[in-house]
Design a protein around this nucleic acid. Structure first.
Length: 560
RNA sequence: UGCCCGGUCGUCUAAUGGCAGGACAACGGAUUCUGGUUCCGUUUAUCGAGGUUCGAAUCCUUGCCGGGCAACCA
């Protein structure tokens, strides 16, 4: 039983009603039917979580079915990637892995049944002519001259289509419905087209391939699906789904449409993502800036965070453009609980502690996760030469500045208070080094005399620091709706600052050996994970999953 | 333009004829060895017009706005 306090969405209401009335004999059978022609993105994840999640919630089953009815666009490569992503999200199809192409023989039998009933016919018209006969949204279509062929002739022609007697495009099989229907899809839709093409699974076994509207309902019916969930764009197709299944008199699932999810500051369509990849605007399908599941995974997102996010945005019968802040909130909430803390200095500034005994190295204890006492503690080396964040020092402290400035005192996390005594400048006038004194009484982070400091800085001991590359990601686009601009291509709104690569970052010793994929919270920065592609032993690359909320940045921003 | 689907805080989503609620965001405050977390508080919405009703976000009519449909794609 899922959480009581979250209200049920409309699909859950439908299923619960069906369960109450015994419409499907108490069964819930769904399916996730991707076409293997691209990688899954977070929009697909919504469908995945609906199909698998609903089955899970109501004690039903969800099939994974590849909708591989178009040999021209589909490839084996995508099949494996899609399965990996679904598993990563935490869903399991058990032994119910199906392919639409395995049903081709059965579909042909159903087609012949329709032909025999006088409900389907072979049309000789060219693609061009069919389009022209179809009419427009405001004018009815006209019947094809082939529409009244005899059953015998249709059957013969269809069999010869299948036997490969005709070239591509010579003939099609069409349903005989209504050329004047206000729903364009009902104007004698195509059921089969001729394609002498090699299929990624069926090889050369077929030269006729079924169209979506004809095939999809049959696939659902054959598998005993009860609730066939799809996105809103298929709403217009439902009368056709129902017509085919009704004519055949076979098991007839209910198609239910939900609103697609879009995310602000990115693009979601497979075609556009594919273009970004092909044009080299991103490093690949798994570029951490992309909304693809492999991209989010490489970025450091957890499947739990994605599922929680999907849960939080709900499901309704209208398309939505979700604020990325909701996604970021979900991943921060998850990572805050589970990621070990670590100190990393991204833009290092040297600090020399002038009253530190020469050569002395101390060890300080650092808790691994204040949210999780069970995570324990680690030991960190502390010495007289340290790196701190360049951003944590200002020569002229603005109002409300809690960090280091000439003469000011701060705490070094887990260690001592230090006071900035002197600023050493380089030849160009830039701040090259800070000379500070520490208070030996403040070990452990508290002053015995009770004096307070407002700021606490992270640091790394210079002689013990590891080196790392850090990649900071920002939104891929500069506007929330890159596709909405009709005057320009969406690529015109690509964010030139979406990736910042920082070299020479100083990290605490253990981080140098962190395993690929490992996640950390870099104190006062954000959540990072070890890149699984470009990290090398001893030379880790860290991807920033998401920054910490930063109320100081807000204060500074308001000032301008 | 014809048909279909939709329109509730900035965003997402509830309220199924009976107090417009939640989450995120924003803002203010408390706590804090992360300007993080946590806690408390505040601001903000029913697309317009008419009707039905004791009572309308909800039902009806109409207008406006958004989306979908004229691939041998899914």
């Amino acid at each position: 039983m899922a959480s009581e306090e979250t209200p049920r969405h409309f699909i859950q209401e439908i299923i619960e009603e069906d369960l109450r009335t015994g419409k499907w004999g108490g069964k819930v059978q769904t399916r996730f039917p991707p076409e293997p022609n691209g990688y899954l993105h977070i929009g697909h994840a919504k469908a995945v979580s609906l199909d698998f999640g609903l089955a899970e919630r109501y004690g039903g089953r969800c099939n994974l079915r590849f909708d591989d009815t178009n040999p021209a666009r589909e490839e084996e490569e995508y099949v494996a990637a899609i399965m990996e992503d679904i598993r990563w999200l935490g869903y399991d199809w058990g032994d119910r892995l199906y392919y639409a192409s395995d049903y081709f023989e059965q579909m042909v039998a159903y087609a012949e049944q329709l032909i025999e009933a006088g409900k389907a016919y072979v049309d000789d018209l060219s693609e061009e002519e069919i389009r022209e006969h179809r009419g427009t949204v405001t004018t009815p279509g006209r019947d094809s001259p082939c529409r009244d062929r005899s059953v015998e002739e249709n059957l013969d022609l269809f069999r010869r289509m299948r036997a490969g007697e005709f070239p591509d495009g010579a003939k099609v099989l069409r349903a005989r419905i209504d050329m004047a229907s206000p729903n364009m899809l009902l104007r004698d839709p195509l059921m089969y087209r001729i394609r002498h093409a090699r299929h990624h699974r069926q090889g050369d076994a077929w030269c006729i391939y079924p169209m979506y509207d004809w095939a999809h309902g049959l696939e659902d019916s054959i598998e005993g699906v009860t609730h066939s969930i799809c996105s809103l764009e298929f709403d217009v197709h439902r009368p056709l789904y129902d017509w085919f299944l009704g004519q055949l008199g076979v098991h007839h699932p209910q198609q239910i449409e939900f609103g697609r999810m879009n995310l602000a500051y990115t693009v979601m369509s497979k075609r556009k993502v594919a273009r970004l990849v092909a044009e080299g605007r991103v490093s690949g399908w798994d570029d951490p800036r992309l909304p693809t599941l492999c991209g989010l995974r490489r970025r450091g997102y957890t499947p739990e965070a994605i599922r929680a996010f999907l849960e939080s945005i709900g499901t309704a019968r209208r398309d939505a453009t979700v604020d990325v802040a909701l996604l970021e909130h979900a991943v921060r909430e998850d990572l805050n609980r589970r990621s070990p803390r670590a100190m990393a200095v991204l833009d290092p500034l040297k600090v020399v502690i002038t009253n530190w005994p020469a050569g002395r190295v101390e060890t300080v204890a650092a808790e691994n996760n204040p949210e999780d006492p069970a995570a324990g503690a680690r030991e960190l080396p502390f010495s007289g030469t340290l790196w701190i964040e360049r951003d944590d020092f200002r020569e002229e402290a603005p109002k409300k500045w809690f960090r280091l400035a000439p003469g000011s005192e701060v705490r070094l996390k887990h260690a001592y208070f230090i006071r900035c005594e002197e600023v050493v400048k380089g030849a160009g006038g830039e701040v090259a080094e800070l000379r500070c004194t520490y208070d030996p009484e403040t070990g452990g982070g508290e002053a015995p005399d009770g004096r307070k400091v407002r700021g606490t800085l992270h640091w790394v001991s210079a002689e013990h620091a590891g080196e790392a590359e850090v990649r900071l990601y920002d939104y891929l686009f500069t506007r929330p709706d890159p596709e909405a601009d009709e005057g320009a291509d969406f690529t015109a709104h690509l964010n030139p600052g979406s990736l910042r690569v920082l070299g020479g970052c100083k990290v605490e010793p253990a981080l140098a050996a962190a395993a690929p994929g490992a996640r950390f919270q870099f104190l006062r920065h954000g959540y990072f994970c070890v890149d699984t592609v470009d990290s090398r032993p001893g030379a880790p690359v860290f991807n920033r999953t998401v920054s910490l909320r930063d109320s100081w940045a807000k204060i500074e921003k308001k000032r301008d």
